[in-house]
């Protein structure tokens, strides 16, 4: 019997049962289970579980709202979202809301053990399929993840020694737009506002975004 406590919540009874059965089979300490968001949140506040495995879309309160409330109320229950939605935005949100895991429902049974293990160890867990979605972010330097594809295009051109004018004509945009993009990138990468700083950075990290 594993010592850490777990609660689950899903508005779909069969799926919930399947998950619960699986957890119990694996001898996890499942101390509660809710059919909607409100029940789930009540369970969390009452029983203070270590881990809460929640569906996102539930009546009364979504998984994200629960996570938000937990964060706001200082509850340290680690939230794992288990959902059919595959959204980059959810990953971002997870970073903000103390969400430790994000599993696609279709892989729930396959990945839940890994996830719980990872989470109990204090590490975030994301479904490999989600990581695929965020491929660059995780396979490459994380500093690139905040750049938009267009900004990355500009960065590539900068690394290839193109001047602002050349970039503008190549991308059919105005010179000023290129300037604006450059300054945006500099801000996002937290570089020093010097003329060459971006070029130097682009040269250094060239291997990361030129495939």
């Amino acid at each position: 019997m594993k010592t850490f406590t777990i609660i689950t919540a899903d508005d779909h009874p069969l799926l919930l049962k399947g998950l619960n059965d699986f957890l119990l089979e694996k001898k996890y300490n499942l101390i509660g289970s809710g059919n909607n968001g409100r029940e789930a949140y009540n369970l969390i506040t009452k029983k203070r579980p270590d881990i809460a495995i929640l569906d996102i879309q539930m009546p009364f309160m979504s998984g994200l709202e629960i996570a938000k409330n937990c964060k706001n109320n200082g509850l340290d229950t680690k939230i794992v979202l288990i959902t059919l939605h595959k959204e980059r935005e959810l990953y971002r949100k997870a970073q903000d809301l103390n969400i430790f895991g994000y599993i696609l429902k279709e892989f729930a049974l396959e990945e839940i053990e890994n996830c719980i293990n990872s989470v109990t160890a204090g590490k975030q867990y994301f479904s490999p399929k989600i990581l695929e979605l965020l491929a660059e972010v995780f396979t490459e330097d994380s500093s690139l993840k905040i750049l938009t594809p267009s900004e990355k295009k500009i960065l590539k051109l900068i690394a290839n020694d193109k001047t602002n004018k050349e970039i503008a004509s190549l991308l059919f945009i105005s010179y000023r737009t290129v300037e604006k993009h450059r300054s945006n990138i500099i801000t996002k990468l937290n570089l020093e506002p010097k003329t060459n700083s971006l070029l130097v950075w682009a040269k250094e990290h060239q291997h990361k975004f030129i495939s």
């Binding site: 779909h12 069969l14 799926l15 399947g18 059919l84 279709e106 729930a108 049974l109």
Partner: peptide, 9 residues
């Protein structure tokens, strides 16, 4: 979606 999940499970 949920039906497919059940089948998957």
């Amino acid at each position: 979606g949920q039906q497919l999940l059940l089948i998957k499970n």
